[in-house]
């Protein structure tokens, strides 16, 4: 039998491997978590479908509501053009958001999004969206931005989601540049909340 010292070292090395493995797992959880949210629609993550994807049509309709928020550090005015739409299930629909740069600077923002109730997310698919890319606005510029989406008719076949009558699609615009002239940290530190509800 190996000496006590050798046996001690052997166990210690395998335990260190365990520690390194757990550390690796902590980092691996970042992409895994993202993948998990995308696949399961967790936390209201909608599905993203490329245009032309075959969809079952149906005669049922559902109400879709639109919500817009802006991070305080981004001086934009961001609102949905229409508060709600009644859409046919399985049929691509188009909605618009209006955004205006109220500052005197060229600003770039990016929008994050989710749908509520969260459990509706796996039946809510985006075909194209202004949120897929960053948006840059000149001082004072105002634009209308489109989002194209459809709701899967399967939503009414799933016992967990068949009682849903309305889905809310929500966006929050964040600034992209993190340098000090665009991100007013003192402002967001003093305010209690990070997001300004605009609607």
């Amino acid at each position: 039998m190996a000496s006590l010292q050798t046996r001690n070292r052997r166990i210690a090395i395998s335990l260190v491997t365990l520690v390194v493995g757990m550390l690796g797992l902590a980092y691996a959880s970042v992409p895994l978590y993202e993948l998990f949210c995308r696949v399961t629609g967790y936390g209201g993550t909608p599905k993203i479908k490329i245009a032309g994807a075959p969809v079952k049509k149906s005669n049922g309709t559902i109400e879709v509501r639109f919500d817009a928020n802006t991070n305080k550090a981004l001086q934009w005015h961001f609102k949905p053009v229409q508060v709600k739409q009644t859409v046919k299930l399985g049929e691509p629909s188009l909605a618009f958001y209006r955004v205006k740069n109220t500052s005197a600077n060229l600003l770039t923002g990016t929008a994050i999004f989710n749908v509520t109730p969260f459990k509706a997310a796996s039946y809510f698919s985006k075909i194209d969206c202004f949120c897929f890319v960053e948006q840059t606005l000149k001082p004072g510029q105002e634009i209308d931005m489109p989002v194209e989406f459809f709701v899967d008719p399967e939503i009414f076949s799933d016992p967990k989601t068949q009682e849903i009558s309305a889905i809310t699609l929500s966006y929050t615009f964040y600034p992209v540049e993190r340098d000090e002239d665009n991100v007013d940290r003192t402002l967001s530190r003093k305010s209690g909340s990070n997001d300004e509800i605009d609607s």
Binding site: L15, L18, V19, G21, M22, L23, L25, A26
Partner: peptide, 13 residues
């Protein structure tokens, strides 16, 4: 051994 490395990873992030 199983829990602390995860905290260490999160703290580093």
């Amino acid at each position: 051994l199983l829990a602390l490395p995860v905290l260490a990873g999160g703290l580093t992030m």
